[in-house]
């Protein structure tokens, strides 16, 4: 019952959102600010986790492929495809759901509780348009970019770890990378990260914007926002894989 009501509210949120902004310049500033917050703000964590994920997947793939008849290049191939298809977009976005999602939910929740949203409404500003839309737009623009970076760094991390551990020579790794490369995978990963980006910005916006009560409620709602985004993200991952692969 609650789920249905929340879903209804979520859809409703979009109702008032797509109107012309009161002031285009202010909207643009807000959008740029969000791009900086979401994009640049999460770059560090994405660099760290994607490099390590790439490194770890090289080591583990090598560990599992013990047979001498399988050429070493296959390791690079497998690392490349898992990083592009799954690790970079899905794991990357799950981490971002925690980082970006909780920030969005608590920021909006705080604005709601301290009546800043009411203050904007009183001025005659459409707060859904001014506060939520820039976050969703900035997220769907910058998060796929971050995921592309994560793909590159993941593969690079794998190359680094492979040679550092003496498992696979960098030249062989590079040869493996171009072997049977399907550009559609990158395209698919971008679609995925676009959908995920929407989920991890829109859902926390909804929970944050509709906080009722006090500071405690902000914490509860932002946790809830992250949990719901992650679950829906994995669900969307499954659906998209079933449909598009």
């Amino acid at each position: 019952m609650k789920i249905i009501r929340e879903f209804g509210g979520f859809i409703q949120m979009f109702g008032g959102m797509f109107r012309a902004p009161e002031n285009k310049k202010m909207f643009w500033n807000q959008f740029m600010l969000q791009c900086k917050d979401i994009g640049v703000g999460s770059l560090g964590i994405i660099v760290i986790i994607s490099t390590f994920i790439g490194a770890v997947s090289t080591l583990q793939t090598a560990y599992q492929l013990v047979s001498p008849i399988i050429p070493k290049e296959t390791i690079a191939q497998i690392v490349r495809d898992t990083v592009i298809l799954e690790f970079a977009p899905t794991l990357g976005c799950i981490v971002l759901a925690g980082v970006v999602g909780s920030k969005i939910a608590s920021e909006l929740g705080n604005m709601r509780v301290s009546e800043q949203i009411d203050a904007l409404e009183i001025m005659g500003i459409n707060t859904k348009n001014y506060l939520i839309l820039p976050k969703i737009l900035a997220g769907t623009l910058t998060i796929p970019m971050l995921i592309v970076i994560a793909m590159v760094l993941g593969i690079w991390g794998g190359r680094l770890a492979g040679s550092a551990a003496g498992i696979i020579d960098p030249t062989i790794y590079d040869k493996g990378l171009i072997l049977g490369f399907n550009p559609y995978n990158v395209y698919f990963a971008l679609i995925k990260s676009f959908v995920f980006a929407f989920l991890i910005t829109a859902i926390p916006s909804f929970y944050g914007y509709n906080v009722k009560g006090g500071a405690l409620e902000i914490g509860l709602q932002s946790t809830r926002a992250v949990v719901v985004s992650c679950v829906l993200l994995l669900f969307a991952d499954y659906i998209l894989s079933a449909l598009l692969l």
């Binding site: 705080n110 301290s114 009546e115 800043q116 009411d118 203050a119 409404e121 009183i122 001025m123 005659g124």
Partner: peptide, 17 residues
């Protein structure tokens, strides 16, 4: 249009922090 002519001081100030 009317809201643009309204100023409101909230109980908790509601400044953009």
């Amino acid at each position: 249009e009317i809201r643009k002519q309204i100023g409101m001081l909230f109980q908790g100030s509601a400044l953009f922090d």
